[in-house]
């Protein structure tokens, strides 16, 4: 069994009297993208900054690939998109990315090719000789993500990667993460729960600097009941609930948002609940938009009974 890529033990950080991280302990293995969620000020950026070596924790220990953040052994293995970090306005994108690649150990020629490669991933090759001030917010964000991919690092820490991007570029970022996740582990901090739901199997929830392990129950296979999330077109909610609750195996129906229903059921009594729901929808001539197994990430994290 391989060693965890990130190990945090009793990690705390205090900013001028305010506790940003409080005794956070966890271990992460190299795997599918990992989501880091939590409200504003929960400590997400602080945690990513500590993992990147930009901040020193007040107490506790951190190891990334077995080394303390900032150590020479991590150069080229770990990369980051820091929140709100901007490139130097005095130099072109190509000049800066080539410089970064050279710091990672590329020769001059290799660095030029590598800078060109990462810019091309984000359709920015034409802007290579522009200076950062000439870029739009979205382009600047894409360049900042592009620099994190130089040298194909094993671990990439992305702080709010899709904030400020248009839907097309959000989609592009998502597909790049999916494409690279076989060789690179991504840790993604975001407020976009739908995005994280699509990308991440593992979620870390931070609230007031404390890691909330119990709230995140991703592995529903071990639970006695299961969930199906049903999104309908305009429909009479009361009637839908009344018809669904009487189906065999259904334990509870909740209606957290307009036209969205969460069906909790006993899989032992009704393993084919999805087919039963479809049949009920067809019989009643309702229109549905989406039927998915499990709860949405938002429901997992923030519903009252979770």
């Amino acid at each position: 069994m391989s060693a965890p890529i990130i190990q945090c033990q009793q990690l705390s950080h205090i900013y001028s009297g305010k506790v940003a991280l409080n005794q956070v302990s966890f271990e992460l293995d190299a795997r599918e993208p990992i989501g880091l969620v939590g409200p504003n000020g929960a400590g997400k950026t602080t945690l990513l900054s500590i993992l990147s070596g930009f901040l020193h924790p007040t107490s506790g220990t951190v190891r990334v690939f077995g080394h303390p953040p900032g150590s020479a052994q991590l150069i080229g293995k770990i990369s980051a998109l820091p929140q709100d970090a901007r490139l130097d306005p005095s130099f072109t994108l190509a000049e800066q990315l080539v410089f970064y690649a050279r710091l990672q150990g590329f020769t001059r020629q290799q660095a030029v090719l590598e800078a060109s490669r990462v810019l091309e991933i984000f359709a920015l090759k034409d802007a290579a000789h522009e200076k950062p001030l000439a870029l739009s917010h979205g382009m600047a964000k894409r360049v900042a993500i592009a620099q994190a991919l130089i040298g194909k690092p094993a671990l990439v820490l992305l702080d709010e990667p899709t904030t400020g991007l248009d839907p097309m570029n959000v989609r592009a970022v998502r597909s790049i993460i999916v494409e690279l996740s076989s060789t690179t582990t991504f840790v993604i901090s975001s407020h976009d729960l739908a995005e994280l739901d699509r990308l991440c199997q593992q979620i870390l929830l931070l609230e007031n600097g404390i890691l909330q392990i119990d709230k995140v129950r991703v592995n529903e296979q071990q639970a006695t009941s299961r969930f199906i999330t049903l999104q309908m077109e305009n429909c009479p909610a009361a009637e839908v609930i009344a018809k669904l609750i009487v189906l065999e195996g259904v334990l509870q129906i909740t209606n957290p948002q307009k036209n969205e229903f969460i069906v909790e059921y006993n899989p032992d009594l009704q393993p084919g609940m999805d087919l039963q729901l479809m049949h009920c929808i067809q019989t009643n001539h309702w229109q549905y938009r989406q039927l998915s197994h499990g709860k949405t990430l938002e429901e997992k994290l923030f519903s009252r009974n979770s």
């Binding site: 070596g53 930009f54 900032g70 770990i78 820091p82 709100d84 970090a85 490139l87 970064y100």
Partner: peptide, 13 residues
């Protein structure tokens, strides 16, 4: 500006 973060993650302080 945050530019130093891009550099420090690739070299020592």
């Amino acid at each position: 500006r945050g530019t130093l973060r891009f550099i420090v993650i690739r070299s020592s302080r």
